[in-house]
Design a protein around this nucleic acid. Structure first.
Length: 477
RNA sequence: GGCCCCAUGGUCUAGUGGUUAGGACGUCGGCCUUUCAAGCCGAAGAUCGCGGGUUCGAGCCCCGCUGGGGUCACCA
């Protein structure tokens, strides 16, 4: 039974990298008919962000990668919020101390910082000097009973080779000599990530730990912890990082790193998920558009890449446009509605969307297409200069009169009407089309003129043509 | 700096010893057209980071180097 988890820390809003990690976990779970679990790792009391957990839950649900079990959902292995599991960690830490795999350390942060500085100065890698390991049990107990603040550190053995058999990278060897006597329990009684994650992953019966590559180097510690507890470790898969354009790990400094930011900009969850799936994984063929179910079908951990990928906004936009082009009208209408202050009738909105969907990237661009909702009040200067001739006013008036007389208002009837007029006047249809577009929309770009007129309706078109003929005065040369 | 990971056009990638190194985004050009898009067609762009080696043959295997990244907290 595959059981995977996404275990974010509520120190900020859900990051796009985090979403991808969650996504891959979700995909593996679905692919293998397993369980996708969400655990909140709030063991750092200093960095908590009040609404972060809520945002994470919300963003995951928006993206469609909701957990089957865990925070916000419940399940048999709860609680799923680490701050509610302190007792468990304390007991497990005590067990380690009891077995001689961990020990209390009384060194103060200031002392450690000083030693670290000294080590750095000497060009050594900064590691704990293990001095509290020399304390006898009685000495340690005495100091604890005297109320001295302390942490619990794990003992790292000398000269061991630890092998992380990573699902993405294959076996990766580490010498225990480069592993620090890691703090497992902080002086405030909270566990560190290393202890909490290992204990929880075991207790929650996690079979695969899929996380970012930044965790690879601390995996030896985790392996040791499993060994100390006598537990079978899960399989590990370390995902390549997502870079910014500067090829650095994507961080908050880069601006739009929160899923929330993309959501607010109007990206569809389908697009973000599709895009993210493709950074670090590929199906092996040329397909590039995937719905979530299609991703589940195509996904495999073996096809996850080793190398980091750059978050390319152009590609995201391309995928976003694809979904705007292909999602059902009804879906788009629902998503566009909230973008309006005073929304039009859904049926009318649907017509506008079908007319304009190949020309917009986001739904908030739809309400910005002002001419669909009210007569233009001004006309684009550049277009006016280029397309409006001296004869245009008279032509528009004539065209309006004929349109008004039309009994059928369709793409075909209006087009035939325009072409007939052009022919009578011995004009190129374009000489009518351009001023008409300007008169009707106020702008020079848009969908096909006759299609637009059909949506706008007969009265509006006639009215706008006359208004333009009336209002647009060419400067006397 | 120590340790670890990575390395195919600007970007995302296919490739698993024999290919004119494929696709996509982006860029440029053309077609279409009433405009803008979309679509279609085409082009430029890769000495497969560099150097050795193994092999009849290497983007694919091995070694070294270089470059980039990650990590070295009582943060995750």
């Amino acid at each position: 039974m595959t059981r995977v988890r996404f275990a974010p820390s509520p120190t900020g809003y859900l990051h796009v990298g985090g979403l991808r990690t969650a996504l891959y976990n979700y995909l593996l779970a679905r692919k293998t008919k397993g369980t996708f679990l969400l655990r909140i790792e709030d063991t750092d009391q200093n960095r908590l962000v009040a609404d972060a957990t809520e945002n994470i839950l919300d963003a995951l649900s928006w993206a469609g990668v909701s957990p089957d079990e865990g925070a916000g959902k419940g399940g048999p292995h709860g609680p799923y919020i680490q701050s509610e599991r302190l007792e468990t960690y304390r007991n497990h830490a005590a067990e380690l101390v009891e077995k001689g795999h961990a020990y209390p350390c009384f060194c103060t942060p200031a002392e450690l910082a000083a030693r670290r500085e000294e080590q750095t100065r000497q060009g050594l890698s900064s590691m704990y000097d293990r001095r509290c390991r020399a304390l006898s049990r009685d000495q340690a107990r005495g100091r604890i009973e005297a109320g001295e603040t302390h942490v619990i550190r794990m003992k790292i053995p000398d000269e061991r080779t630890l092998v992380v058999d990573d699902l993405v990278r294959g076996p990766v060897e580490f010498s225990s000599a480069v592993v620090d006597d890691q703090v497992l329990v902080k002086s405030d009684g909270f566990p560190t990530y290393h202890l909490a994650a290992v204990v929880d992953d075991h207790l929650m019966e996690i079979s695969h730990v899929i996380r970012g590559e930044e965790w690879l180097t601390s995996t030896p510690k985790h392996l040791l912890l499993y060994e100390y507890f006598g537990w079978e470790p899960p399989r590990f898969a370390h995902l390549p990082l997502i870079f910014n354009r500067q090829k650095k790990k994507l961080s908050k400094r880069d601006g739009d790193v929160a899923v929330e930011a993309y959501r607010e900009k109007g990206y569809f969850p389908e697009a973000l998920v599709n895009f993210l799936a493709l950074i670090g994984w590929s199906p092996g063929d040329d397909r590039e558009f995937f719905t979530l179910p299609e991703l589940v079908e195509a996904f495999s951990i073996e096809r996850v890449n080793k190398s980091s990928g750059v978050f390319d906004l152009d590609k995201l936009n391309y995928i976003q446009r694809h979904y705007v082009k292909t999602l059902p009208t009804e879906t788009l209408v629902q998503r566009a509605l909230p973008c309006f202050e005073s929304p039009p009738e859904p049926a009318y909105l649907g017509q506008i969307i079908d007319l304009m969907r190949e020309r917009v990237t986001f739904m908030h661009e739809v309400p910005a297409l002002g001419y669909f909702y009210q007569d233009p009040e001004q006309y684009d200067e550049k277009v006016l200069k280029k397309r409006w001739k001296e004869s245009s006013s008279e032509l528009m008036t004539a065209f309006a009169r004929r349109l008004e007389a039309l009994s059928a208002w369709t793409v075909e009837s209006t087009e035939a009407c325009l072409r007939a007029l052009a022919e009578e006047r011995e004009l190129n249809p374009a000489e009518l089309i351009h001023p008409t577009r300007l008169a009707i929309s106020g702008v020079g770009a848009g969908a096909g003129l006759f299609e637009t007129m059909e949506v706008l309706g007969q009265p509006a078109c006639v009215r706008r043509l006359r208004a333009a003929a009336d209002r647009i005065q060419l400067p006397v040369a």
